[in-house]
Amino acid sequence: MLENKVKALAEKAIEDEQDLFLVDVKIKGNSGNQKVLVFVDGNNGISIDQCSKVSRYIGNEIEEEELIEGKYTLEVSSPGLDFPLTLHRQYIKNIGRDLTIELTDGTLLEGELKVVDDDEILINGKDERSIQFIDIKQSKVKVSFK
């Protein structure tokens, strides 16, 4: 319930920023000592100023509506490279980058993300391969230190 309310607040906070999109909201901890994590990204990334603006808006609304009793911590940030890709828009943003993909059958694949369609992606690893989104359990951008 709280998670849905925070998601709605986050969506409202970024509605005028066409470049930004909400990736996820997570609530951790117990009542009286909760951590509210809001992950926002943009087609060209997200700046600290944009995160601060979203954080101020959400924080003010939480206080005004008294959504959380007791103390809480609010963090607004980009998802980071270790955060799985969950949205179609994130895949589009990462075309040209190497991904590590776990399929629903347990198969692990690695390759460069070449194409993103409505229902599938195309990666070029050991060979070129199309993968349906419904067959993907988890995808992450592969960190490279070249």
Rank of each mutant, 00 (worst) to 15 (best):
K53L: 09
T86C: 05
L20N: 07
E102C: 01
Q132I: 07
L74V: 10
E110P: 00
N94C: 06
G70R: 13
E17P: 09
E61G: 03
K7L: 10
E11T: 12
V36E: 06
T73I: 15
K114Q: 10
V143C: 04
S55K: 08
E65L: 15
Q50I: 05
F83W: 07
D82W: 06
L9G: 08
L67P: 01
V115G: 01
K114Y: 00
I48C: 06
L113F: 04
K142Q: 11
L85M: 02
L20V: 09
K28I: 11
D135P: 00
F145G: 02
L122A: 04
Y72M: 06
L122V: 14
A8T: 15
A8N: 14
K140A: 01
L74F: 08
E61H: 08
I14Y: 00
L81M: 13
V54S: 07
S130C: 08
K71I: 14
S77E: 04
D98I: 11
G70M: 11
S52V: 11
L67Y: 03
D19F: 06
L67R: 05
V6Y: 04
G111I: 00
K142N: 10
D127A: 11
V76M: 13
S52Q: 12
Q18R: 09
R56W: 05
K26S: 12
K35N: 14
R97A: 07
V36P: 06
E65Y: 12
K93H: 03
P84Q: 01
G70A: 10
D118T: 12
N60D: 15
K126E: 13
E120D: 09
L2N: 03
G45H: 11
V116I: 06
E3A: 13
P84T: 01
C51R: 07
N30T: 14
G70Q: 13
S47Q: 06
D16L: 06
V54N: 09
T86A: 07
V76H: 08
L22C: 03
I101R: 10
E112P: 02
T86H: 08
E15V: 14
